[in-house]
């Protein structure tokens, strides 16, 4: 083939393959996916009383904005509302996004393994976890008893799950604050604990949004 013909072939090949692979293929998959698995294809969105409250797959922050007692307005820090964990809800893992659990701009925290910045971040997460859960936990909590997933930042920043150990500790607080028997809260934790893929891949996890929604059904939510 001459060079001109070859250039033409290259250009035509790129255009034709763009139509096939860049337009026809994704649109076909979208069509089939929307028909065969509409819930999954749209992100397993969860509605309550007709209102979108989140996605089963996307971790969200179960915190409430802090009101400045002087101004009566929501406190902000660098333009981001300051929040405090709502003790009635199970809490998701620490997040590296801004603000936490930002599902429109995900990012890793990129904390290095030998960095003082990392140590300080983990230590702060441990303190927050202990101050939130320690008072309700029989015998109190120490750093060594905090499960790693409660102190380490997640990868996605929107991890929807926590470990069973983490959920079991938080269950004491949630039961006390909601005036529910501990056994009942633990039973809900078990209900929303997922198994491993094929029985052996990945961790067993507790889905926080599903668990909190179930709690609200049992003992009444915010609104």
């Amino acid at each position: 083939m001459g060079i001109k013909r070859e250039i033409l072939t290259s250009v035509v090949a790129v255009l034709v393959l763009t139509l096939l692979l860049g337009v026809a293929y994704p649109l076909a998959i979208t069509g089939i996916g929307q028909i065969a698995f509409p819930g999954n294809a749209n992100g397993q969105l969860v509605y309550r009383h007709g209102r979108l409250v989140g996605s089963d797959l996307i971790g969200q922050s179960f915190a409430t904005p802090v009101i400045d007692p002087r101004t009566g307005r929501i406190q902000t820090h660098d333009g981001i509302p300051v929040t405090t964990p709502d003790p009635r809800y199970f809490q998701t893992r620490p997040s590296g996004t801004t603000p936490p659990d930002n599902a429109a701009a995900t990012t890793f925290a990129n904390y290095g393994p030998n960095s003082r910045i990392t140590e300080r971040a983990i230590a702060a997460n441990i303190r927050a976890y202990i101050s939130l859960n320690g008072p309700y936990y029989p015998g109190g909590l120490t750093a060594a008893r905090v499960p790693v997933d409660a102190a380490d930042t997640s990868a996605s920043g929107i991890d929807p799950d926590i470990s069973i150990a983490n959920a079991d500790i938080q269950a004491h607080r949630v039961a006390t604050v909601r005036h529910l028997p501990l056994a009942e809260v633990l039973r809900l934790v078990r209900t929303y604990t997922g198994g491993r893929g094929l029985g052996f891949v990945g961790n067993r996890t507790v889905n926080v949004l599903e668990l909190n929604l179930a709690l609200d059904r049992v003992s009444g939510g915010n609104r």
Binding site: T30, R51, Q60, N102, N222, R223
Partner: peptide, 18 residues
């Protein structure tokens, strides 16, 4: 989405699987 504690959360979507 408007979460259980009233915080709003924008959830990015897209034609991901293909």
């Amino acid at each position: 989405a408007h979460g259980l504690t009233g915080l709003s959360q924008v959830i990015a979507l897209g034609p991901v699987a293909s």
